[in-house]
Amino acid sequence: MGAKVKTIERRGSTLTERIYLIEIFKGMARTLRHLVRNLRDNKKLLVRHYPEVQPEIPARWRGRHRLTKHDDGTVKCVACFMCQTNCPAECISITAKERLDDKAEKMPASFNINLLECIYCGYCVEACPLDAIRMDTGIFSVTDNNRQSFIIGLEELLTTPGAYSEEDYKKGGA
């Protein structure tokens, strides 16, 4: 199957086009129509009034991370370090400790993600064998005044809720 070739017609060689001015006036008429339309009714501007009107974030969108929990509220993560190993930005740092509630052998003692280094690639989510880390919080704006507060720890990762229902998230192909 050969590649589809589309021949684009070369423009700009007829006399009227070579005089420039006529085409320029046509272009100016077009932009003026936009201006007049927008001046008459500025609801037609193609803008979202951002901080007040928030964008709709789809479930597949990679936002800030969170760690998921079992139904009984205990942490799912088994501190296997898969995400840390896979992270291209090397911004995850985990320390493991022994787990005593028989769910697994290990659990994270600390789990830090440096959001300033994170490139939001989602590889950590893909690497996790237990679906313990997700990026489905829908948080897209991460701002603060000092660097320290961008390193989020276990506590914050566990308490941040997901923004979507389980079905919606699964529909995204996760």
Partner: peptide, 10 residues
């Protein structure tokens, strides 16, 4: 502002 309105932004 003119640039904005010409390009459908505000």
């Amino acid at each position: 502002r003119g640039a904005g309105f010409f390009q459908d932004r505000s």
